[in-house]
Design a protein around this nucleic acid. Structure first.
Lengths: 97, 97
DNA sequence: AAGCAATTTGGTATTTTTGCCAAATAGAAA
DNA sequence: TTTCTATTTGGCAAAAATACCAAATTGCTT
């Protein structure tokens, strides 16, 4: 495979990988309506807070979410609504056939 | 997290996982225009044919592609064009900011 | 400054994914 | 039937992803 083409698909795959985890999809779903802190998200999902922090970091690195600092909280919100199209399309893919 | 909700995101994540690999994205990109056999795809990408077969199997299991048998070839094609929206959206996500 | 709460980081064990090889299967052609 | 080609399967080793704990950091609030 051509190196340039290969690079293109490597980069795209990175985005899909960032989305390919139930907790991270839940974060996107939750943060689309309401800003949420790390602690709040952690309690909703029921995992270790350090694990949640790392999931948020993965989404942040790909600019899928962004965090706003308020006191010593960080409130996350969805940065790219386009990702919601991913989600609704995913449902169609699952339900068809 | 509510069990039902959890199941929803688990299922969605499965779809994203199926797409989260450069070779599999290349397959989708290639098969959208032209039916291709396992061997043809293998030669384009330059990996072991058994590896390609397994990538195709993952996409097939999620109904993302479908194969038509002709002689002892199997020609694959894109089953759900909706996935292309994923792809073009992914480009936007990458290029923005 | 000291204590406290929210978040991140480092380390590690576990699980999952990936890719190759070798062998098995399927089917066409000789 | 035998041979040849295309594809799949099983097994295994290497790489990547995940989750927890413990410790560090950040920045309020006393």
């Amino acid at each position: 495979m051509n190196k340039v083409i290969e690079m293109e698909f490597l980069e795209k795959a990175e985005i899909f990988k960032a989305l390919a985890h139930p907790t991270r999809l839940f974060i996107i779903h939750t943060v689309k309506d309401k800003k949420m802190s790390v602690k709040e998200l952690t309690e909703l999902v029921g995992i270790d807070i350090s694990t949640m922090s790392k999931h948020l970091d993965i989404l942040k690195k790909h600019k899928i979410i962004e965090g706003d600092k308020f006191k010593n909280f960080i409130y996350y919100r969805l940065a790219i609504p386009c990702v919601l199209d991913f989600m609704s399309c995913a449902i169609k893919v699952i339900n068809k056939k």
